[in-house]
């Protein structure tokens, strides 16, 4: 058994962390809220594609990195830590959806396509600034223009908007099965971004609990505070295990992907929520100010839980698969 990242993946994570530390920061989310700017927060589509990180799972023949979903998950964790935008979820899904559409794939990998994937009846991730939309329509995967209706965001890093895909959007190869697999792959990367955000929120909370003194001692020495942070730590590590498993399954054990992706999606939703709310609680008064980063992680949590199906749907799917598989 070797359920661990290898050295190359660790190097990849370190390189992604370096790039993202320069290119993005949680403070960008606050600036976007302050200014009312509705575009993508840094690093933005162009930089993400140029870095090569966004296109890791796109085939080399189409100009991508030809890497595994686990490679992309490792990068997505780093992106989640700094609340980078746009989401790598879109690139992960596109690499699947355009598996037999080389023109679109090359355009995406070359930076010439600002894409968003449209889930019916749901706000669309990174719709703002997108010029091309892909959707499932009557069993066909279609790609074309769309009308974007912006709304006031909770989390400005997600670029959510309502989208009406143009009636003349044209079919690309693939059907409901491909769509479903791409959605699951997207769930894995969404969970990986949630893992990064949750583990960073935990770190900030732990640092503060060591520094902040009350009644003559560090607040992290009080079991009431300590145990809250430990519960987050335990959930974050279990989420990490689920993300790795799901990403591994996508490439190596496709039959396990539906359960693994639903479990990772559900765990990410609840874990990030708990991590962000604990971060606020541990900080006391400063924790619910506009100037502290805590609410930026909280905003990510409150929105991400609804993406790619909500956590309620994901838990329901896990239960159905569990009872089915157990029969």
């Amino acid at each position: 058994m070797n359920f661990d990242l290898d050295d190359e993946q660790r190097d990849l994570a370190a390189a992604a962390r370096d790039f993202l530390a320069d290119a993005a920061a949680p403070a960008n989310a606050r600036e976007a809220l302050d200014s009312g700017a509705r575009g993508a927060v840094p690093p933005g589509r162009d930089e993400l594609v140029k870095s090569g990180f966004a296109t890791i799972t796109i085939a080399e023949s189409a100009g991508g990195g030809g890497g595994t979903l686990l490679d992309l998950a490792v990068v997505a964790e780093q992106a989640g830590r700094v609340l980078a935008g746009p989401s790598l979820v879109t690139y992960a899904r596109a690499a699947e959806l355009f598996a037999e559409s080389p023109t679109q794939l090359e355009a995406l990998a070359g930076g010439g396509l600002a894409l968003a994937v449209v889930d019916a009846g749901s706000p669309v991730l990174d719709a703002i600034g997108a010029d091309t939309f892909v959707a499932l329509r009557d069993g066909d995967i279609v790609c074309g223009a769309g009308t974007v209706t912006e709304r006031e965001p909770i989390d400005p890093t997600r670029g959510l908007a309502d989208v009406a895909v143009a009636p003349d959007a044209s079919p690309v190869p693939g059907g409901p099965d491909r769509w479903a697999r791409a959605e699951r792959v997207g769930r894995v990367i969404l969970a990986a971004e949630g893992l990064g955000a949750a583990s960073r929120a935990l770190e900030i909370g732990v640092e503060y609990a060591k520094e902040r003194h009350a009644f003559g001692r560090a607040i992290g020495s009080y079991q009431a505070v300590k145990h809250m942070l430990v519960d987050v730590y335990v959930e974050v590590e279990q989420l990490r295990s689920l993300v790795w498993w799901a990403a591994w399954a996508a490439d190596n054990a496709p039959a396990e992907l539906p359960l693994a992706a639903a479990a990772a999606k559900a765990a990410a939703a609840t874990t990030l929520e708990r991590a962000a709310e604990t971060l606020i609680q541990v900080h006391g008064g400063i924790g619910f100010t506009w100037e502290h980063d805590a609410h930026l992680y909280w905003r990510r949590a409150k929105v991400d839980r609804f993406l790619l199906g909500d956590d309620v749907a994901a838990f329901d799917e896990v239960a159905r698969i569990a009872m089915e598989g157990a029969r």
Binding site: E235, L239, L242, A260, A263, A266, A314, F315
Partner: peptide, 10 residues
């Protein structure tokens, strides 16, 4: 069941 099953898998 979903919640406990996810935690068990984790």
């Amino acid at each position: 069941l979903g919640r406990s099953y996810v935690a068990s898998l984790g």
